[in-house]
Design a protein around this nucleic acid. Structure first.
Lengths: 174, 174
DNA sequence: GACAAATCACTGCCGCGGCAGTATTCTTAC
DNA sequence: GTAAGAATACTGCCGCGGCAGTGATTTGTC
């Protein structure tokens, strides 16, 4: 995260990048970078970045209750997550609370201050997304999601020459 | 770059992420990460990462001749580019050659060793991309590119509340 | 011709993400 | 009951990306 600002953003009239090869990859990188830098810019007034917002949002929505949950849910490194949570806790937007039944886990609760900020944060998030999806019909958004989802699925079940990626899809214990 | 390997890659049966909110952003991040980690894995045997490959490729194809060219073309930071080129030069895949007419610029030439590796690198690149696009019809690939391109264009011409992003689209000299 | 502005490559600095390793606690197997 | 394994959170370490600033050189302006 942090992408602080779009790289210069010279003055490209259109987004026609390298045609051949990884075009799709380039386009995804550019689109994602634009989304993230826009989000970072909108969140800057609150002293937050995109990742911190995402974490806060997932916690508030109940999609996750612990750091491990968040990491699984967001495909994020556990070490980095610890530090994200540190920053959120420092800012007083989050509280950590050791679980009594299982003393390994630490529950994460959005603090009152965080809960108070969330509506504005959410507004910033939807603003950026809607802006990037300007002119998209609902069907087109759905199509985009579907195509991206298929790419992800393909990546999870690679059919490469020798299974080079570290997928150890332990398919169900015997 | 460098994403060295996919984050754990636990065992998610499908890519159904957070429905609401930034879903598109999450999906793009995941898809891009999958592409990059796959590419890094395929390039690891050559001691290269995705970024180094991309640079070498653009240079070989004549899309750019200098560091500044590459940065504009790939939306990349000039400082980071210098270091990417340093590594490629260290590996003997690239030569720097000061221009005589304009002594500020340094021409970049793919060294013989680099040119020799390129076919295998290219093969790795297309392998990863094709793998992620498995089952996609040409029309679907085209649709995906078009949708991503529109998102990028939207991001370049933001219609946000107060032009928060640092776009200074100096619209054509008068 | 002189000065300002722009361009190019590069460097120092900082934050972040990913990996590997650690301590603690729980679960499973024998 | 105990030992082995897994899970959780955390820390140290390293590489990389982005920003700001520098020096050299060229271009543009008056």
């Amino acid at each position: 995260m942090v992408r602080r600002a779009t790289i210069k953003a010279e003055t490209p009239p259109a987004a026609h990048l390298p045609e051949g090869g990884l075009s799709v990859g380039y386009l995804m990188g550019r689109a994602r970078a634009s989304l993230l830098s826009g989000l970072d810019a909108e969140l800057a007034p609150f002293g937050l970045n995109a990742m911190q917002y995402a974490v806060l949002k997932q916690l508030a929505e109940g999609s996750a209750r612990t750091a491990a949950d968040l990491c699984r849910y967001m495909y994020y490194d556990t070490g980095s997550m610890t530090r994200v949570l540190d920053r959120l806790e420092e800012k007083g937007l989050l509280r950590r609370e050791r679980c009594r039944e299982d003393r390994r886990v630490v529950f994460l609760r959005v603090a009152a201050a965080g809960r108070a900020q969330l509506p504005r944060l959410r507004a910033a998030g939807t603003r950026v997304l809607d802006d990037h999806l300007r002119g998209f019909s609902p069907a087109e958004v759905e199509a985009l999601k579907r195509l991206l989802g298929r790419m992800i699925d393909n990546g999870l079940r690679p059919k490469l020459t020798g299974g080079a990626t570290d997928l150890h899809a332990r398919g169900g214990k015997p």
